[in-house]
Design a binder for these strands. Structure first.
Lengths: 155, 155
DNA sequence: AAATTTTTTAGGTAAGACCTAACTTTTCCT
DNA sequence: AGGAAAAGTTAGGTCTTACCTAAAAAATTT
């Protein structure tokens, strides 16, 4: 468990995937399946799982599977929250369709600051689900607070 | 000149910097100055300039300086356009102050698709300058087109 | 023209993401 | 149960990006 250190985009990609599979689809996270979905060889997935384990983001038992730790769970939720709030923005503000919104959000979520995401979240009154109906986790420090003027203004 | 190939975030950072210095501040692009502003050793800057030259984004004469090619010029404008439109969104929609908007835009501009940026551009009626008054270059394919419903709706 | 400053070259390092081939476990069938 | 097939892992690479230091070479200053 290599202590803190920032998470890379790629690590984030795996965390989101694992979270969805495990906590939203209640299915087992299989190396081969992940490999297919990330378009990478199984060996690469194994490597990444070990790496995530070293960083304390999940527990990994070889041949048996994987389970997010508190920290990994939190990190995944943080990312998915960003992702889903961005989706919300793109659909509501720009009229993007769900698929496009999701694609775009995938490109940006990792890089968007929490502050940005929280501000958007507030602007939309703390939505509970994203445009595709997945839940948007709530987050401390994202309540109250003044809103952007856009709220009262016809753009 | 190594043909196409995608530009990395970092390459983009240099292009934006060079563009601003050369075409907006009309000052010479000096290795040492760039090094300071990017917080890197001069040798690293030289290396990057050579690299950008190989990719055909600028012409580089050692000890003498650098000049963007058509391609590099276009690339820089593309990025700055993204940057400035994102700033516009953050200031107008979220009420961000200019500095914060700029910081956030810096993190995202490289990753935002042109489509996204154009859609935002349209939503704000093709603004000509960003919140800090720098010009937002216009872009083919970013005119007309239907707008997001946000335009007619009080959010 | 010397001294100083700036820039470049040469020769590294390190992290991230990948891969193939061979090996080990687990799972599935008969 | 027991062996074949499938799934997962290890070992030992490669490649790209982005850095760095020290020494050498040009350009500037004085």
């Amino acid at each position: 468990m290599k202590a803190e250190a920032r998470i890379t985009v790629n690590e984030g990609k795996y965390l989101k995937l694992i979270y969805r599979k495990q906590h939203e689809e209640f299915s087992r996270v299989r190396t081969t399946v992940v490999a297919k979905s990330v378009r990478v060889r199984p060996a690469t997935v194994t490597e990444m799982l070990q790496n995530l384990a070293e960083k304390g983001l999940l527990r990994y038992t070889r041949y048996r599977g994987v389970r997010l730790t508190e920290k990994g769970f939190a990190e995944a939720q943080k990312l998915l929250r960003k992702h889903r709030i961005l989706e919300t923005l793109f659909v509501r503000f720009l009229n993007y369709d769900v698929q496009k919104a999701c694609d775009e959000a995938s490109k940006l979520d990792h890089y968007a600051s929490e502050d940005l995401v929280n501000t958007i979240c507030r602007a939309y009154g703390h939505p509970e689900t994203c445009p595709c109906n997945k839940t948007i986790f709530s987050h401390e420090g994202c309540e109250e607070k003044p809103l952007g003027k856009a709220r009262w203004k016809i753009i």
